[in-house]
């Protein structure tokens, strides 16, 4: 791995350092993502995944350590990093088309064309003029993905983008994302606590410890690409899954113990 696309060095985040009760959310997070690599971060609830992603996006300020994208230190949000959140992803006052155009620059006909192209990519060209309230949850996330892809950020950050969807829709979205990724090869950091999702989508899975978060394990996923839904029933898939389940479970137990100790 030569120069990393995204590199996170010894990242620390302490909430409430101004006296209102300190909470160490991240304690020395260290990892790299290579160009065109799909990396997923998993961990128990509250371990600091969203905090980590927000800092990389530049929306939250780190307490210590650095984030470097393409050799440049991150000091705030920017167009080199696209973000897809779990909720409130689309502007309800804009149509699907206008939501995508919102992210674009250039002349209005150029923007319209690029937006249309990307809605087609996620299979929503027919719903161009629909408002988010007229779309299903899965469709909304597809528009959000179209928007994030449309302006070609260097790194795509996704925080549980399918977390609010039902199991079937979720799997379809995973397949769609994999297909798009395999065709376009972007650098992605994906956050989830769904282990199946992590194994299916990723080149590598990073497991975080329970709070305060650190990277506990870095597991390359060797499943061949292109991947289709059949991957979900291969022995290989189950092996990775079993391994990660165990690894995450240890952390869940640790945080449960910590909670009991508190009580």
């Amino acid at each position: 791995m030569d120069a990393a696309k995204l590199s996170v060095r010894d990242l620390r985040k302490v909430f409430g350092a101004d006296g209102s009760g300190e909470l160490v959310a991240l304690d020395g997070v260290d990892f790299e993502i290579a160009e065109k690599e799909f990396v997923t971060v998993i961990g128990t609830s509250g371990c600091g995944k969203s905090t980590l992603l927000s800092i990389i996006a530049g929306l939250e300020e780190e307490t210590g350590g650095v984030v470097v994208v393409d050799g440049e230190h991150v000091v705030g949000p920017g167009r080199d990093r696209g973000v897809v959140f779990q909720t409130y992803t689309l502007f309800p006052w804009l149509t699907a088309q206008k939501n995508v155009e919102f992210a674009l620059q250039g002349s209005s006909s150029e923007r319209a064309d690029v937006a249309r192209e990307h809605l087609e990519l996620v299979g929503l060209d027919r719903f161009r003029d629909s408002y988010p309230s007229q779309l299903s949850g899965g469709m909304r996330q597809r528009v959000a993905i179209a928007r994030a892809l449309s302006y070609k950020p260097e790194v795509l950050l996704m925080d549980e983008p399918f977390g609010a969807l039902d199991a079937q829709t979720r799997q379809l979205m995973q397949e769609l994302l994999t297909k798009i990724w395999e065709e376009h090869r972007l650098t992605v950091m994906f956050v989830t606590h769904d282990i199946d999702e992590a194994v299916f989508l990723s080149d590598r899975v990073l497991v975080m410890t329970a709070s305060p978060g650190r990277i506990k394990e870095d597991l390359p996923i060797g499943i061949e690409r292109p991947r289709t839904f059949e991957v979900f029933s291969t022995p290989e898939f189950f092996e990775y899954k079993a391994h990660l389940l165990k690894s995450v479970r240890e952390e869940s137990l640790r945080s449960a113990e910590a909670m009991e100790a508190l009580a």
Partner: peptide, 28 residues
């Protein structure tokens, strides 16, 4: 919702643009 504002910022918009194109329509 803070997420709307965040989206504006991650698209490289300045505060004033976010105010005009995100906050105002959202609160209207």
């Amino acid at each position: 919702p803070r997420e709307y504002v965040d989206i504006g910022h991650t698209l490289g918009m300045k505060d004033r643009t976010v105010l005009r194109r995100v906050v105002l329509p959202a609160a209207a």
